[in-house]
Design a binder for these strands. Structure first.
Length: 213
DNA sequence: GTTGAGCGTT
């Protein structure tokens, strides 16, 4: 009785999705099933896990059958301590296919797009702009990188820091070789040398030392 | 073997 998630999504049309956050990395659907099933009829439980390691990502999805039950579960299991960790139960906002969800219910039906809303009727992208959920495995690195970024400012770099001033294209570069993507007046791509300088890779430091030598 | 803001699969 715990083949939840083993197969594809059964039917999420008449079910309410619940998101469980802050759970331990060892908590499985079997541990959440008896907990959530006690407060309502659990249709399905799914916990995203890695394909290689198989470890949970720290959150799970619980689908109930009725709204009153899901609401009760949120009010009851939200803040509950599971496996020694406090879990956070809340309504799911997005669906498996990036569908909009309201109060746990999936709303793949647009209110009005080609009826009498806009004559153009091409604003579907507004609902799918949330696909930019670029999540990082560890946020700690972000802070580390940020802290390092501040260092090079007072590190007295020999090269100009102006991002708007390219190193020196000179004649050594073939004009014909220039990528057609440089149509942007603001070149975001830095030279391989500058990139290595900003990079946190230790090889960059070694490179610097070698040049100094 | 570690971690900790978030939004999902046959």
């Amino acid at each position: 009785m715990s083949h939840f998630g083993r197969t594809g999504p059964p039917d999420i049309t008449d079910t309410y999705s619940l998101l469980i956050l802050n759970i331990t990395f060892r908590t499985t659907a079997d541990d959440l099933f008896p907990l959530f099933d006690k407060y309502g009829k659990v249709v399905d439980i799914f916990i995203p896990r890695d394909k290689k390691t198989g470890d949970s990502r720290g959150f799970a999805f619980v689908r109930y059958k009725y709204a009153d039950e899901v609401q009760k579960a949120v009010d009851r299991l939200d803040g509950r301590v599971v496996d020694g960790r406090e879990i956070a139960v809340q309504f799911a906002k997005y669906g498996p296919n990036a569908e909009r969800i309201h109060k746990g219910r999936i709303i793949e039906k647009f209110p009005d797009t080609t009826s009498s809303r806009s004559p153009r009727g091409r604003y579907h992208d507004d609902y799918y702009r949330e696909r930019d959920y670029r999540r990082s495995r560890s946020r700690s690195w972000d802070r580390y990188e940020r802290g390092r970024s501040r260092s090079y400012e007072s590190f007295s770099p020999r090269r100009s820091l102006s991002p708007y001033e390219p190193p020196s294209p000179s004649k050594g570069e073939s004009p014909g070789r220039r990528s057609p993507d440089e149509r942007s007046p603001t070149p975001r791509s830095l030279s391989p040398r500058e990139r290595a300088y900003y990079s946190r890779s230790p090889s960059a430091t070694q490179y610097s030392d070698e040049v100094s030598s």
